[in-house]
Design a protein around this nucleic acid. Structure first.
Length: 304
DNA sequence: AAAGTCCGCAACCGCTATTTC
DNA sequence: AGAAATAGCGGTTGCGGACTT
């Protein structure tokens, strides 16, 4: 069977985009909107592959792209999110307004990964799995003094998944908060489940040596509703109450007890995790408080 | 000044998930 | 229900500027 190629290779420009091509693409998308990437080049009069147009728009031409260097705050957030989510660059980028997955991926591979490696060689801490390009060879370690606080990086990588599956956004459904596994240590006892997402849950909740001094301090499973999470993630709760929150989504049809199975984008399962910059662990009363906040927020979002 | 090497980043590639028909 | 089309993702490549010898 096989897939048809995304575009004919003949007569298609490759490599760096010219200013004229950028202008044409920007003008077309402003007039017609995003989407229909395969047909876009022909309609816009560009000799480019549709995928190339999409990438150019998303990574460079979009008006909301944030220019300039990654700030220290952003860097710290990237490290925390990478600890929690692994190489899910798109999801990480989703929490850094104006930054693209490609930019964050490049930044990680070039800057953070090296800093972490340098840091680990000094202190015994290991990198949170920097995925340096094999083509680049061994990174040089003689860099400037790292600015990353060692406390940000636990001894064990927090996410064990080697490759990142797609992680769809979904939304919390009011009243369906199951909160079955709000206490992270409980997850470790559940050894029967072997899905890599379960490994994520365990790994992000507690490092392998039992040291719970990891950045994630609240995790809970929820049933999710597709129209809610985006609003939730955009809400003030994430930044004002717990500094950061994340949905570690993903579906596991084989496991419909601990993780609600899903055949629809309207209802799916996932994990919501909160963490504080200080890396402190929430006490059980605090966990309950967060859960309560969540439900309040759910109600508030729906009543607003 | 020239040649070689390093490094960051934009772009490409191959794959999977999702949507459409 | 299933095949095809489309969209999106992460890994990798290679260009070009900066730096070193």
């Amino acid at each position: 069977m096989g897939r048809s190629p995304c575009c004919a290779k003949e007569g298609v420009n490759r490599g760096a985009w010219t200013a004229m091509e950028d202008k044409i693409l920007t003008g077309y998308i402003k007039a017609n909107g995003e989407g229909k990437w395969r047909n876009l080049p022909k309609k816009a009069g560009l000799r480019r592959c549709g995928k190339s147009c999409r990438l150019r728009w998303l990574n460079y031409l979009r008006p909301d792209i944030k220019r300039g260097n990654i700030t220290l705050d952003e860097e710290e957030l990237i490290i925390r999110l990478h600890n929690l989510l692994g190489n899910r660059w798109s999801l990480i980028a989703g929490r850094l307004p104006g930054r693209t997955d490609n930019e964050i991926k490049n930044y990680w591979n070039t800057t953070i990964g090296k800093k972490l490696q340098s840091s680990s060689s000094r202190s015994g801490f290991v990198s949170a799995r920097p995925s340096l390009s094999s083509s680049q060879g061994s990174p040089k370690l003689a860099l400037e003094k790292p600015t990353i606080d060692d406390t940000l990086v636990p001894v064990e990588p927090c996410v064990s998944r080697a490759t990142a599956p797609r992680c769809p956004k979904a939304l919390l459904s009011p009243g369906s908060c199951q909160d079955r596994e709000a206490q992270a240590p409980d997850m470790v006892d559940d050894k029967d489940q072997s899905s890599d997402r379960h490994e994520d849950r365990v790994a992000t909740a507690q490092s392998s040596d039992g040291n719970s001094n990891v950045s994630c301090n609240f995790m809970a499973d929820f049933e999710l509703d597709a129209n809610f999470l985006e609003a939730f993630l955009e809400s003030e709760l994430a930044t004002n109450t717990q500094q950061s929150c994340f949905l570690n989504g993903g579906l596991d049809d084989s496991d419909n007890t601990a993780w609600p199975s899903s055949t629809s984008t309207q209802n799916s399962g996932g994990t919501l995790a909160f963490f504080n910059p200080g890396g402190t662990i929430l006490s059980e009363p605090d966990l309950q408080c967060v859960a309560s906040l969540l439900e309040n927020e759910v109600d508030w979002l729906h009543h607003d």
